[in-house]
Design a protein around this nucleic acid. Structure first.
Lengths: 269, 269
DNA sequence: TATTCTATCTCGATG
DNA sequence: CATCGAGGTAGAATA
């Protein structure tokens, strides 16, 4: 049988089952009353209570209470689990290095322990991610605007890689920033850095402007005012593609002369 | 007994136990072979495999494989769990609204089902958080620098509340930004926004300068060059308190004339 | 290994 | 309800 399970075991019985399960590489769940302490990147203590301890063969450990999506305490994958009986009580310790951290679970009662050998089915297919959005736009560029032609994805710049780079119907360079969900002002800032970087790049190429284009990501009002269509700086358009934007983000988009295209990562159902 | 547990139940038996456990408000764990599908903020499908399903009385649902700290699929607290047998198979569905999302787990085999009534011990005490760092600095301001006097925490500004605001030995205003761990350039940007906001505020108060101090968070090189000690703008110092900074962040700190104080949230052991 | 960015982030505070 | 920021964020991609 793929599952072993003991109900109200003694602490010693629980220890035997745990060690066997570690040996087999099982996925383990333990119900019991316990205290939990953690020390590592931070430190925490949790008093006695009924909880669910999950131990995975990859080294992950999770302590769950009856509330919340997050475990109340945990240990990341790559940790090592050990179990022992001390003073007649089951104790499970999970440790890892870099950073050094330790999770200790001390049981006063073990109510139920189960272990299962896990096989197969690790291939999750997720739809509706930012990559889906990129795919969708490359297949149907007119969703951005009529006449838009994608030229490159992940085009490098001094401000990092742009999501999509292309030209509009007039041949003007367009930088498209993709977000799979509603965005705040930070996304506009990101787009602004790309636009500024490309303006400097094209300016340097065509005429006088920006030197080696290094670090100053946050200065934007150097060649102020004539942002939208070319004074001294070359024209580069910025388009933010996202399902929606916050009010602040909309203000900033308007300030910068950028456009927003409302688009979901998945076709409307 | 606080725990009920069935080994290799029929799908109908599993359903009965589940419904009883829902009724009692138990914390539930189910081992079994299943497929999982999610639809809501995104969409995903997961083929057949052995997994652990955790159902919480607060509505949270977690599907764990043998790897990773994160569940492969989940539903947040506030969802509603329902169970049924369809075509002879146990099916668990967890739904919530706003946003509308649904998690469906279809079992081909149920290996083990346990349910426990959970009591007590929800009071986690965590040490080493950003708040600990703030407390530590307020108690020992000299850790920032000799002569530093904290005046306010969470002082409001047009760029949001500052972590700690005070004055240095010369009476110069100092903005302190706290981070509990190693920081990148983003934290410097955050600090820069506070400093700029306060300069505008003080400038408007004292003399001519900045108008209504609204949105343009990312322009910084307006009164360039004489940043560090007063040209036209009033002098405001920025100090970043964190255990360490990345190279990029260090460059930016130097550019802005800001200081870095290396400090952990907890006293060295 | 270290850094950067995304996430069905989660979670809490706040307007 | 939306927004904002912290997190022992986790996890992936990248240099």
């Amino acid at each position: 049988m793929t599952v072993t399970s003991v109900h109200d075991p003694s602490h010693r019985e629980a220890l035997w089952e745990l060690e066997d399960a570690f040996e087999r590489g099982d996925l383990i769940s333990v119900f019991g009353r316990c205290t939990v302490s953690y020390e590592g990147r931070a430190a925490s203590d949790l008093g006695a209570g009924d909880r669910l301890l999950v131990l995975k063969p990859d080294g992950a450990a999770l302590v769950h209470t009856d509330e919340g999506r997050q475990p109340v305490n945990w240990q990341p994958p790559g940790s090592e689990h050990r179990a022992a009986v001390r003073e007649g009580r089951l104790r499970v310790v999970s440790t890892r290095t870099s950073p050094a951290e330790t999770l200790t679970v001390r049981f006063s009662d073990v109510h139920q322990l189960s272990a299962m050998a896990v096989t197969g089915g690790r291939d999750l297919t997720l739809h509706g991610s930012e990559e889906d959005l990129r795919t969708r736009i490359l297949e149907r560029p007119e969703l951005v605007e009529p006449g838009f032609e994608p030229r490159e994805t992940e085009r490098p710049s001094s401000a990092g890689p742009m999501d999509v780079f292309g030209v509009d119907a007039d041949g003007t360079p367009v930088i498209v920033e993709l977000k799979r969900r509603r965005v705040g002002p930070d996304a506009v800032g990101q787009l602004a850095r790309y636009v500024r970087a490309l303006r400097e790049e094209l300016g340097a190429e065509g005429g006088g402007g920006g030197s080696d284009a290094g670090d100053s990501e946050e200065s934007d009002s150097r060649d102020s005012d004539s942002d939208a269509d070319g004074g001294g700086a070359p024209t580069v358009r910025g388009v933010l593609v996202a399902p929606s934007v916050t009010d602040r983000a909309a203000e900033r988009l308007a300030d910068r002369g950028f456009d927003h295209v409302a688009l979901d990562p998945t076709p409307e159902e």
